[in-house]
């Protein structure tokens, strides 16, 4: 395991990381939550490379989900929520794809998806929960029997059984574990030894990374190992869990990265307009994803003044007073 510590062999570009770990048909877990800390630089690269037939697993995902689905990269989705708060009560391309039968979707809840990642991290085949008993979330399957191979798709969505230890009349729902092929997250800092620090909410990022076969972390900055060792209780993931590290400033744009920048209302409003319309959406992908030659070029398109507007206030951690209408 020694070689997995330090950044040697792990430090790479988004193109290298995606090429190495995100293949057609693989199961990917995307971190963040709605408009916060989505690994967007990786998502755009996956779209640019035209990766296909992905099996996306997430809890409450917004922007990353919508771009991946809208770019035609996704065939199957297991998810709790596809929305972007005020900017998309339901994610637009996600909605169109589900209504049009272009993707298969199986619904769970946030608690269930989090627990399923935790089960994967525990290396157990399933985990019990009380969420959703008696509801269609447990009773309605979204995946057809022929793809339920018991490997990356569970043989059944859920199994309800009586508590075998205590009260025999008390039911629990057993949820299948998730072990994604690759987990993508965006963090604020990674140290020179590969330790990851996340500031603010962690959502289910840690569980999904511990459950995955490979972990790609994009980050705002690389910092000295001694700096993250000063407060080890603030660190999220140890180096040996991380396979690829990609420094990408503003790598979560247009979603927020607490203490570095807020979500970008200007871009999310633009997105809202184009994502509703197929022709405008195709043009958006051409302009903002396929036609952008580098991350620098993407940021130039967003514009320096806008990046300053969304820059986080040092004390607040977001951009107070930002016009978010």
């Amino acid at each position: 395991m020694g070689e997995r510590n330090g950044l040697d062999g792990k430090l790479m570009t988004v193109a290298e990381a995606v090429k190495r770990y995100v293949r057609d048909g693989c199961q990917i877990a995307v971190g963040g939550f709605t408009i916060n800390r989505n690994p967007m630089a990786l998502v755009y690269e996956i779209a640019r490379r035209k990766v296909r037939d992905l099996h996306l697993v997430a809890h409450s995902n917004g922007q990353a989900l919508d771009v991946l689905v809208g770019a035609g990269c996704v065939a199957r989705i297991e998810i709790a929520y596809g929305g972007n708060g005020r900017f998309a009560p339901t994610c637009f391309r996600f909605r169109k794809a589900v209504e049009g039968g272009e993707v298969l979707v199986e619904d769970y809840t946030n608690n269930q998806m989090t627990l399923r990642f935790l089960a994967g991290a525990l290396n157990t085949p399933f985990i019990p929960s009380k969420s959703g008993l008696g509801t269609d979330v447990l009773q309605q399957e979204g995946f057809p029997p022929e793809i339920r191979d018991g490997d990356k798709v569970a043989r059944k969505k859920v199994h309800v059984m009586a508590d075998p230890f205590g009260h025999a009349d008390d039911d629990v729902a057993l949820l299948p574990a998730l072990t994604p092929d690759v987990s993508l997250i965006h963090a604020q800092q990674v140290s020179t030894d590969g330790t990851v620090r996340i500031k603010g909410l962690t959502f289910a990022d840690l569980e999904q990374c511990k459950a995955a076969s490979a972990v790609i972390v994009t980050c705002e900055e690389i910092v000295p190992e001694c700096y993250l060792r000063l407060d080890p209780d603030q660190n999220a993931l140890p180096p040996f869990l991380v396979d690829a590290v990609v420094p990408v400033p503003y790598g979560a744009h247009p979603t927020a990265c607490p203490r570095f920048y807020d979500y970008d209302p200007k871009h999310l409003n633009l997105y809202k307009e184009v994502a509703k319309d197929d022709a405008k959406w195709a043009a958006y992908l051409d302009e903002w994803v396929y036609g952008v030659e580098s991350w620098d070029a993407y940021l130039d398109k967003v514009g320096g003044a806008q990046l300053v507007r969304i820059r986080a206030n040092t004390v607040a951690g977001y951009a107070p007073g930002l016009d978010r209408r």
């Binding site: 939550f33 809890h59 603010g200 909410l201 959502f203 569980e207």
Partner: peptide, 23 residues
């Protein structure tokens, strides 16, 4: 906040935690 994932949801909070904690 405009989403439950908004950075404003943990401004001067007692904890900025994760989903396992809240659930």
């Amino acid at each position: 906040p405009i989403s439950v994932g908004d950075s404003r949801t943990f401004y001067r909070a007692v904890m900025a935690a994760g989903m396992v904690d809240t659930m």
